[in-house]
Amino acid sequence: MRDYLRTHEGEARILVVLALLMLVLGIASPSFFSASNIASLLNNNAVNVIWAVGLLVVLIAGGIDISFAVGASVVQYLTALVLLWLGGGNWLIGLVCAGVLGILIGSINAALIAGFRIISIIITIATFNALFGLLMFATSGRSIYDLPDWWTDRIGVISLGDGGTLTLPVAVMAASMLATWFLISRTTTGRQLYAFGDNPEGARRAGVATVKIQFIAYGWMGLMAGIGGLMQVNIAQEVVPNALIGRELDVLAAVVLGGARLGGGRGSVLGCFLGVLLVAVVQNGLNLMGVSPYAFKMVIGLTILAAISLTNVELMSRLTGRTWRRSHDQNN
């Protein structure tokens, strides 16, 4: 654990902040730790976490993806059309369909980024506009409400008692976290993702297949975008083509807040979860304390700004720490 915290300073910091915050909220409002509040906190943020772990993989590999929320919208819409055409379908078909479509969209990004060596932010901004424009044009902005029942029915998975039930999206979130953790921590491919984000030239020289690595990163992001999109329908019970726009930046902020580094090589699944949760808990806490919902964003923005500044106070102490280590090293 000590080792983990040492190599994951971002996660350690946010864990402390989150724990303190929850403690304060727990004391200030008894309903904070109630089963129903915890359940709704998780149910409402499951999709963000699914997207966050997808984005995490791209950030680890040194890229960025602005287009995933639009990608998720496209997947939602196409999946809905496929399912309607099939006359209903079921969860398995839905998952496969959303996953495959998501991976396809991710692969388009990867092909452009790796194939033409264009910086990822440009490509994903371009695909954001292209996909969003095409989606809105093709659908004329019409929502789909007539969806199969299995898709929109609330499915309780675990009951926390007292009216709090964790729903299917939370289970899928847990599975996505586990799968992503397994990919990035337990497979050689995952370690190559870190290496490529950390030092692309070094990775290339060591024999890492860099094009393949980028397809895996953006493909995984696409997969998570698709699955997240599928789950979002379960929560919202409708497919609205422009409903997810703007979520990409919120998720990005949460992932970076959770210790992932813009520029690659650093980040963890736990950090993503904590990053999303921190924003959610701040919002939840303000809600419980009866603060006007209109003030939420302001406080969240201020929290992130404070966190950024705090990060760099840390940096100062790390710099002095390094000098210490260096002289220590020489004394040995």
Binding site: S185, R186, A195, D198, G202, G207
Partner: peptide
């Protein structure tokens, strides 16, 4: 690879090649 551990840096060549578990 600055962000990876000392152990992984030393044994990095064993992480390249066919995908497998670490």
């Amino acid at each position: 690879f600055p962000e990876m551990t000392v152990a992984e840096n030393i044994a990095f060549d064993s992480l390249v090649g066919k995908p497998r578990l670490v």
